[in-house]
Write a protein that binds this DNA or RNA. Structure first.
Lengths: 89, 89
DNA sequence: TTTATATTTAGATATATATCTAAATATAGG
DNA sequence: CCTATATTTAGATATATATCTAAATATAAA
């Protein structure tokens, strides 16, 4: 958590695109991976960074792990950026 | 410009702190540098990345270069984050 | 023009990161 | 238990980045 991890997580294009995908609702790691031309291991790496940053939550469901967007951390980013402009939120 | 350069620029702690300093108004590269324990060359590097991202503007004034926060790029970041949540702005 | 100050650029280096393949772990179903 | 599928972890590698010192550029002032 924290703005450091949030910004680092967002500094990679693939990870931002993962978040864009998750706007439409939770997806399994495999489903997410199908949208990108990277190995499963690389996808797992990106997901773990997004999870560490709190930008996604993971829900274990049987054989699958569903990932979903965590908007509260997005709100924290917006709040940080707003303060830069001297605004309360 | 673009969200890629913006996020990369924000992914470094020193650069975020520079932006925080600039909330109080424009400062010269030297003044900014005095707040950090890095060389002038390193400070110049950070300022160039912030400038490339459009997060700061530079105003040459005689022997000095004043840097100031460019809030319009901060607005673009906020807009991008808001769209992640499915909001218009 | 010469000297001093402000800032950037060049070149080097150590650390961080994105990626891969191969192996390990977890769960489901026969 | 055994096999198949989903995902992660381990280890390797190439690129990117943050930092430094030294040199270059720009402007001001003597």
């Amino acid at each position: 958590m924290g703005i450091q991890k949030t910004c680092k997580a967002l500094s990679d294009r693939t990870r931002r695109e993962i978040l864009d995908l998750l706007k439409n609702g939770p997806m399994t790691a495999g489903e997410i991976g199908m949208h990108f031309s990277v190995s499963g291991a690389t996808m797992s790496h990106h997901l773990s960074i997004l999870k560490e940053a709190g930008l996604v939550l993971d829900v274990h469901q049987g054989k699958y792990i569903y990932y979903e967007l965590n908007t509260s951390v997005v709100d924290e980013l917006i709040a940080w950026a707003s303060r830069l402009k001297g605004e309360s939120s």
